[in-house]
Structure formats: C-alpha cells, structure tokens
Design a protein around this nucleic acid. Structure first.
Lengths: 172, 172
DNA sequence: ACTGCATATGTGTATATACACTCTTTAAGT
DNA sequence: ACTTAAAGAGTGTATATACACATATGCAGT
C-alpha cells in the first residue's frame, strides 16, 4: 500500500556516523530513560489495559468506572469542578467524559438550585445498576493486580503517588 | 447558550432518597477510591502537565520527548514494534505519534534492508538538535519533581512502577 | 440598576491511546 | 514452486486529555 511513503533506500540501509552533537546527546538521552513522568505514564498505559479488559463486559472502561464510582461514593451530588479536582482531571476533560456517560444514561447533570452556573453530578438508576454490576469485576482485577505486585507494597506506592501528584500540583 | 440542555429542575433540586441498592453500592464505591489503576492514571495526568509546560518552549510534549529520547538513546535504529514495546505503548499508538514527529522533521522512518516489513526509527539532524536543546529543560522539571517528592524515594517508586507494569502485562 | 470582576461551565482544536481489522512480506512445510 | 501461517505495519473508529478561548452567572461596590 505504502501510503506513508517511508524513505526508500538502497540495497543496504546506511546510517551515517553520528555527529559529535549526536554522540553527546545520545548519552544524555539515556539519562532520560529515568524520566519520572515517562515511567508513570508507561505504567498507566499498561495497567489500564488490564482494567479495561476486566470492565469491558459492563460496557465501561477504567476511566468511566472511576467517574461512576466517585459520583456514587459522594452522598450529595458534587459540582463538576470539584469532581474534576478529585479526579485530578482537567475540568473540560471531565465535561467530555460525562457527555458519554450522560448519553449512555448512566449519569445525569443537574443545575444547582442556588447557583445556576454550577452543575451537580448524580447517577441515574441505570448508573447505579451498572456500577453495582461492575464492582465485582473491578474487585477481581484489583485483587489480581494487588496479588501480582505484592499487596504489602501498595499502601506505600499509593502514598508516593499521592505525594507525587500533590508535589507536581504545587511545583506547577 | 445551554447547548447541552441540563435537566431543568424546580426551585430546589430534589435528590430522591437513595434506594437500598444505591446505599450498598455507594459504600462499595468508596472502596474503589483505592483503585490502583485510577491512582496511577491520576498521577500520570497531574505530572504530565508539569513536564508538558517545561518542554513547551521546544515544541514538544512529554510524550514526544520520551520518544525522541528513546530513539536517540539506542545506538542502532530499532524497529517500530520493538520501540513500542519499550515505551509500553500500543504499536499503532506509536505509529500515530511518529506521524507528527516525522511531519515536524524530527524523526525519519527507514525501511529495513533485510526485511521490507520492518520500519526502523531514527532521528534527523533537526531531531538531534531539538532533543539536545530540550534536555536541559527536562533536567529542570525532573530535578524539581525529584526535589518535591524527596529524591531518596524515587528508586523505590521506580522499581514498584516497573514491577506493576510487568505484573499487569503478565496477568493480562 | 450599573459596572466590573470572579466563578462555573462549554467549545474549538490538537494530541494520545488502543482495539479490531486489513494489507504486505516473510518463513515454513509440502 | 505452492500453500499457508506468522510477523510487521497501517487504517477506521472511539475515547481520553488539556489548553486557549468564549459564554453565562453571581457578587460587590457604586
């Protein structure tokens, strides 16, 4: 097909000898393999796949499950902004994530009576049902993951992640 | 504007008394606040913003920087699949990420001489230059983040993240 | 009531992410 | 050589993510 038109080279691909800049940069770049951000993102990518698979039978991914669980966990419907803050998610990202959940009939977005600006988030009956049905599946992966990583190390890891999140929020 | 048509309620938003199912589910949902996947994803979201801001002057985000650094760190150009594996990223995701870097003239995708199926990834001269220029900025955020989290705890956290990633790859 | 600022939210746009599926090329077996 | 399975890569589609910007509402001071 060759749509992307990779460079066609001759019989043997020739790699020009790296320049001095390239050599020094290559050494420095290896240092970046220790990047905190990269490591966290990579882990997030990998672990998300397990959770997504586990929740798939319920029509949810791990992100949607987290949102449902948070909304369901708070006694009184919280505002969109506050919810986004707890999720550590940009407000506008939550807006878009909610659109799907609303469309699926799992959540409802209510206008606050006191302040017409604020939207309060709640689960529908269907949302409660789906969340209830998904919880055992979540407990399954969570248990497997815990077992695989060694359950005793989770409290520590959890605290470090919290710390890291808070630190970066400060540092900007 | 009111495009999204939130439910308009009366004077006071009424929240119907939660059903028995909802009550039980709410308790269970609070348990999900301890979700490993959620915590890792949340941290990834938060920390990414710092790194993105730091790298922005170079026209890179943290993901693009990681890709450039990895390609630059390996002596011989590696295949797309192998690179994706090291990044802990779906192969097709890397394909799309590379499209932007290719278009920006930072990377080049070469056809392997021995196997016409295989694409090998390399940096262009411009790619080397941008990477070299971005590295100090990266060292900046990395240092700040390290300092904020307590540098001594990073090796441990790093190992736990690696372990977690490997565990989930196994578990499925 | 009016003005101006702060707050809560939504939109446009660009990038990241992965699954299901398809295409191409290689290798293995006959 | 022919057939077929396996490996490498790309595309269609859906979702996640955040920044810059726009809009709507509330509130305080006049």
């Amino acid at each position: 097909m060759q749509n992307s038109k990779p460079l066609k080279l001759g019989k043997q691909v020739k790699f020009s000898k790296p320049s001095k800049l390239a050599e020094e940069t290559a050494n420095a770049a290896r240092e970046a393999g220790n990047c905190i951000c990269f490591k966290v993102r990579k882990t997030a990518r990998l672990i998300s796949q397990s959770y997504d698979r586990a929740l798939k039978p319920h029509g949810l991914n791990t992100n949607q499950f987290s949102i449902l669980a948070l909304i369901g966990a708070t006694p009184e419907p919280q505002s969109l902004t506050d919810t986004a803050r707890v999720l550590g998610m940009d407000r506008t990202t939550l807006t878009r994530n909610l659109r799907l959940l609303d469309k699926a009939g799992l959540t409802k977005t209510l206008v606050d009576a006191q302040d017409a600006r604020t939207r309060r988030l709640a689960l529908t009956d269907k949302g409660w049902a789906v969340l209830a049905a998904a919880l055992p599946s979540w407990r399954g992966v969570q248990g497997q993951t815990l077992a695989a990583m060694g359950p005793e190390s989770w409290p520590d890891l959890r605290q470090q992640l919290d710390h890291l999140g808070r630190a970066t929020t400060m540092t900007g």
